[in-house]
Amino acid sequence: MSADQEQQTIRCLVAKVGLDGHDRGAHVISRALRDAGFEVIYSGLHRAPEEIVQATVQEDVDVLGISILSGAHDTLIPEIIDGLKEYDAFSDTLILVGGIIPDDDEKELKEIGVSEVFGPGASMEQMVEFVRENAPDKE
């Protein structure tokens, strides 16, 4: 019963941005996160960066997972990050990227604030573990 007092749950937004209709991965991830006991908000397909920003700010998620397989990550992800900064939501959101990201780009993404990139072959356990360890603690 004492669990009644505080009910903290890790909240995640699984986001699909841009012209990329491949959502099987995002669905599988959403489900894995749910089964890990997290609350998952799924954005739906073809979202604009500003929509992702809006959702991240309003939902106050701990984790933003961006699934992107279109190759447009270099354009879209910086836009999202700039938006988050504008609303003061950058510093306490863990940003993850999943998809086909070349090594050089991965380095760049990490420089601008992405915490981890999960490519093909990454396991669910790995990802869930990473989220558990790195989800920001909101005072």
Binding site: R34, A36, I41, Y42, S43, E51, E59
Partner: peptide, 28 residues
């Protein structure tokens, strides 16, 4: 979920008419 406490909150998917409009504050 009564088992894991996890949830997929999907209502936001339908909020397509208010893109980028911060004056609609939507919370799941």
């Amino acid at each position: 979920s009564p088992f894991t406490g996890g949830a997929v909150l999907g209502d936001r998917i339908r909020m397509g008419s208010n893109i980028g409009d911060m004056d609609v504050f939507f919370r799941s």
